[in-house]
């Protein structure tokens, strides 16, 4: 599976009938935006609404030609939209009396912080995607993956993994490093496609 580069996606997005590209863009950025919005301090239900708003606003503005890549990074632009959407949501709630006064604005971190949170979330999303691909690949044996999951997701010490799976400690490390090596190469491929800024 070859990842489409972000540049290629952006080109495809200008075509209103190109649903496939839009779905790909959505798949890549929705999780990032959602986690990002959660990190702004919004509860889960609100975050998913704000994410939806953000993606739609982005697409509309993009097709209207208001994004000029020469003038700013894509991430800054999405961050700005997401931030505005989040503020709108909080303002609306405050107006309905659900929140009081200035706290509605204090929730949102400053611009620099948002940039950093965004980058972290992009990195995490990329790593998640890479892990998903590692798991789905047939080239890595199931047992090897299982051992890797035990070490990472379950946080078990190598000794214990060896006991539970009935292999030697050396085998555990072989599995661990086989997965990591593959993961590194997947991440390297995907970073190019994601064009992480």
């Amino acid at each position: 599976m070859l990842e489409k580069t972000t540049t290629a996606m952006l080109q495809g997005l200008t075509d209103p009938d190109n649903d496939i590209v839009w779905r790909e863009f959505d798949a890549r950025y929705r999780p990032v935006i959602e986690r990002f919005v959660r990190r702004m301090g919004l509860p889960e239900a609100d975050a998913s609404d704000v994410t939806q708003d953000t993606l739609l606003k982005f697409l509309r503005a993009y097709r209207a030609g208001s994004y000029d890549r020469e003038r700013g990074r894509l991430s800054s632009w999405i961050i700005k939209i997401a931030r505005n959407c989040a503020c709108d949501m909080l303002r609306a709630r405050a107006a309905r009396g659900e929140r009081r006064g200035a706290s509605a604005y204090a929730v949102i971190p400053g611009e620099n912080q948002l940039e950093i949170i965004w980058r972290e979330e992009c990195r995490d999303a990329l790593l998640e995607a890479a892990l998903a691909r590692l798991r789905s690949e047939t080239r890595t044996e199931e047992q090897t993956i299982r051992i890797f999951e035990m070490l990472t997701a379950e946080g078990l010490p190598a000794q214990r993994v060896a006991q539970e799976t009935g292999v030697t400690l050396n085998d555990v490390y072989l599995a661990k490093h086989r997965c990591l090596k593959r993961l590194r190469s997947i991440v390297a491929d995907m970073s190019i496609a994601y064009e992480l800024e």
């Binding site: 995490d124 990472t152 490093h177 990591l180 590194r184």
Partner: peptide, 17 residues
């Protein structure tokens, strides 16, 4: 050297989890 490099990735994965 490979183990060293891999372990950096390992830390990232653990942190993600």
């Amino acid at each position: 050297a490979m183990v060293r490099e891999n372990n950096e990735m390992f830390t990232d994965v653990v942190r993600l989890n």
